[in-house]
């Protein structure tokens, strides 16, 4: 059952990925990419990585919706309902992408994967974090807060008030 679900989601993820370059509307391309990411998120849930899976789903929805604004804004035709194409330099792009895919797939099959030792831990997400971060966890968490603070601060500094939204207490401001 889980194997079937895994393969269905895997094929769907690749299929939606292909769809990104086939559809002729930027809105559809954006949401095909989102669908592909959601498939990957559910794959993580299947691997019992609950937190990571749900987080991927949450972050990808938010991220792709914000991306949609920019992807459409930077289009040749921001109206967006006119047909468009996501590909150019077809031959070169095909050669590069097939090359990269082959290299990555070969890597999967050529790597001597170690056999499983021990059993599934009670909280796989915690164990993954431990394995990747180890004693650097505290540093990474502090850096995470610092990055968040930097982002908020830079947005605050970068935002100048628009024409219509001056502070309401100022004389010349919009009431």
């Amino acid at each position: 059952m889980e194997t079937v679900a895994f393969w269905v989601l895997a094929v769907a993820a690749v299929g939606f990925g292909v769809a990104v370059f086939v559809v002729d509307s930027m809105a559809r391309a954006t949401f095909a990419l989102l669908a592909s990411f959601l498939c990957v998120g559910v794959e993580l849930l299947l691997l019992d990585l609950d937190y990571l899976g749900v987080l991927v789903i949450l972050m990808m929805i938010m991220e792709m919706l914000i991306m949609a604004v920019f992807m459409i804004m930077y289009m040749m035709n921001p109206g967006g309902l006119m047909p468009m194409t996501m590909v150019h330099n077809n031959r070169g792009a095909l050669a590069i992408s097939i090359g990269v895919f082959t290299a990555l797939a070969a890597g999967i099959f050529l790597t001597p994967w170690p056999p499983r030792r021990g059993t599934v831990p009670a909280d796989p997400t915690f164990s993954v974090g431990q394995a990747i971060m180890g004693p650097k966890m505290l540093v990474m968490m502090v850096i995470g807060i610092a990055i968040l603070a930097t982002m908020i601060a830079s947005v605050v500094l970068a935002t100048d008030r628009g024409r219509y939204d001056r502070p309401s207490h100022r004389e010349d401001g919009a009431k």
Binding site: D50, Y51, V54, L55, I57, L58, I61, D123
Partner: peptide
């Protein structure tokens, strides 16, 4: 086990 995050998603 992470229902709150799922709810938010």
């Amino acid at each position: 086990s992470v229902g709150v995050v799922w709810f938010n998603a």
